[in-house]
Design a protein around this nucleic acid. Structure first.
Lengths: 157, 157
DNA sequence: CTATTTGCAAAGTATTTGCGCCGAA
DNA sequence: TTCGGCGCAAATACTTTGCAAATAG
């Protein structure tokens, strides 16, 4: 079966080699924001011959073709996620390093307008909120916000 | 004469050594978003004995005390700017790497609300827009937006 | 005086590259 | 068959650290 990313590779005219296919599959299945080491570790389970260098080369390639986006999310190493039609943003727990994704459609519109105001066409945007969990008082209301993913986090910076 | 940052250091109970004073002054005077090398080069003109390691140690210290904020702004190396009362954001020209600062007060409010909705207290936020200059049509309207700084940019990533 | 800080050089991370062999188209 | 991709190891880029000498409070 062909993963979403494999299809994008073909559409972009990329040669589909074994390693690329493996990495593409990993990327399609993993959730969260893996860094290169994680990707390498996972790809390694599909094909132990895949080298770290290839993972680096592949994510760079995918990024250049708009298939992946690079984030920092408060960690030192680069972390990646698939590009979506609409942007979503990240809320990072300063203590644990956990990342929560959230949507905020108005924001993108607003930012597009800001860019235009300065004579720019918006290509992409990164929004990272750093916060501390509220201990006390009113239980958080999360009645809106469609998708929402929490991940275990690497190092709490 | 004492720089703004020097004052902040004293308030934070930091020992004011020669190197720190020099770096603080550089930071107060430079505009833009210098990386560690730039700071070192500049500090070097004030006192040639200041080492790169000390610059690294000092920016880390200042960051921990909330005096400085670390940004990435599309480049690999960390870049710094003074913390202000209110956050401002960055628009990066994908071609040249130039950085434009802009204010968007509503945004911070909105983001604070989003964080609260997820049960978090907002500590800081980073917003980076990546854009391409509009060649054609209507001259950009910049009648609002208070402050605005453009800087020459290091490497266009 | 004493606990911190500094410079230096060496060690650590994160990422990229040169090169000869290998495989997809 | 051909050209680009791959693994490997070495190179590079950025940042941190151990240690002995220097210094702020």
């Amino acid at each position: 079966m062909e993963s979403r990313i494999e299809r994008l590779c073909v559409e972009n005219g990329l040669k589909m080699t074994g390693p690329r296919r493996a990495i593409a599959r990993i990327l399609s299945e993993v959730d969260g924001h893996p860094d290169v080491d994680e990707l390498h570790r996972l790809a390694h389970t599909l094909d132990p011959r895949i080298s770290l260098a290839t993972v680096y080369r592949t994510v760079r390639l995918f990024e250049q073709h708009g298939i992946l986006e690079r984030r920092s999310l408060g960690s030192r190493r680069a972390r990646y996620e698939m590009s979506g039609e609409h942007d979503h943003f990240h809320l990072i727990d300063q203590e644990s390093g956990k990342v929560i994704e959230f949507d905020e459609p108005e924001t993108e519109t607003l930012m597009r307008r800001v860019a235009a105001r300065h004579g720019f066409d918006l290509i992409s945007l990164k929004i990272e909120l750093f916060g501390r969990k509220l201990r006390s008082e009113s239980p958080p209301d999360r009645s809106d916000d469609a998708r929402q993913t929490v991940e275990p986090a690497g190092e709490p910076r």
